[in-house]
Design a protein around this nucleic acid. Structure first.
Lengths: 205, 205
DNA sequence: GAAGTTAGGTGGTCAGACCAGTTTGGTTGT
DNA sequence: ACAACCAAACTGGTCTGACCACCTAACTTC
């Protein structure tokens, strides 16, 4: 076996246990002491594996209760990775560009997949509440019906808030965008995006 | 302090040490025992933090030598995350769609930013060596001059290889794509992409 | 039956021990 | 003087046992 480190091996064993026992998000894993027993390794090695999984956001530990499988989420990870990676101007510019490209992509797709129900829901949100850009665009990405796109966007957005202050737009932006989405006019939506979002971001450089 | 766990605190301290001492990729971190001393915590807690960083691919440990800062890379992370996340058909379909959208996006951008030097290099690769899709498209993404795009694509691609067998295309695909890129004709490049890649992927569902 | 208490289980942390590698510098032999 | 060798002093890798803080459930008491 090439993998020499015990904690890596434990990770795969835990993965196996989850599969064999049919554990799902929210379920409890065996306790650290039991894993240490079952796998014939020290408890500290088990903990090293669990800590890594925790930082990845794959599990959650509650003192006195146990270790639980989590719905895949970000957790501490994003913020930490952000400070490790986003150090120079180059990285920040790359992030800005990537976010813009990615959002345009999602916007087009959301336009194509817009349905009346989704639109009603968004319409309700925009008119009733005081919307901000972040939650508004989250709705758009969700409208793509692609959970992975949403996950990536959430990460990009989280990173982005590490380096840039919050932005806000006039209600005309949200209304116009909503209209374009409702009429499935992706060109119009992209135009609005360019006009408001891209303009706004390039001036704050 | 809201952050109760010691190992999380250690993560931030390590981050601080890297910054204050001006450490860069390839440099050695203080030893586990020294960190344990300096931060006034147990060595096992230090190790829990280091193991997590290692799994994230941010550091590399070599027995007998020490702990070193790594160029941000994937490592064990992708494969492990893959088995945790990519379980159902839904997730796999999302991944496929995301990869296609993302590659189209990169293709357009690479077309816009193509230079003679880049093109010469790619031309050389395609004609001299036996290229595969993976390394060919990596060149394209690199041609965007956006390191973050490359990072995301590498992750998507790694995940993708977890669920799908390798693909190969006739040399006419690579040559045509190269031509389109050289002439900065993004429409033509996208058309080729649709014709070969998308077609190929949808039939293997 | 309800309230309070206790015992056992859980994660959180630490200290110490030992093993297994690498590096370094001194010793030895030529 | 030079080379080869070897031992000491690092490094990470792992295990054990101990203690704490916290939660839960079962038991006791009223």
């Amino acid at each position: 076996m090439a993998t020499s480190k015990v904690y890596i091996e434990i990770l795969w064993q835990i993965r196996r246990i989850i599969e064999e026992d049919g554990l799902q998000a929210g379920d409890r894993l065996p306790s650290e002491r039991e894993l240490s027993d079952r796998l014939q390794v020290g408890r500290s090695s088990v903990r090293e594996a669990l800590r890594a999984l925790e930082l990845l956001g794959l599990i959650e530990t509650r003192r006195g209760e146990g270790t639980f499988i989590k719905e895949f989420g970000d957790h501490q990870l994003i913020h930490l990775l952000g400070t490790f990676i986003l150090q120079g101007k180059r990285e920040k510019d790359d992030l800005k560009e990537t976010k813009i490209l990615f959002e345009k992509m999602c916007l087009s797709l959301a336009c194509m997949r817009m349905t009346d129900e989704k639109w009603q829901k968004m319409h309700q949100i925009v008119t009733e509440e005081q919307v901000d850009y972040e939650s508004f665009f989250k709705w758009i990405v969700e409208a793509t019906d692609n959970y992975l796109l949403l996950r990536i966007w959430l990460v990009l957005n989280d990173f982005f808030t590490c380096v840039e202050a919050d932005v806000s737009f006039p209600s005309s932006f949200y209304e116009g965008m909503l209209l374009a989405l409702g009429q499935r006019q992706s060109e119009k939506a992209l135009e609005l995006y360019e006009q408001f979002v891209v303009q706004n971001l390039s001036k704050t450089k």
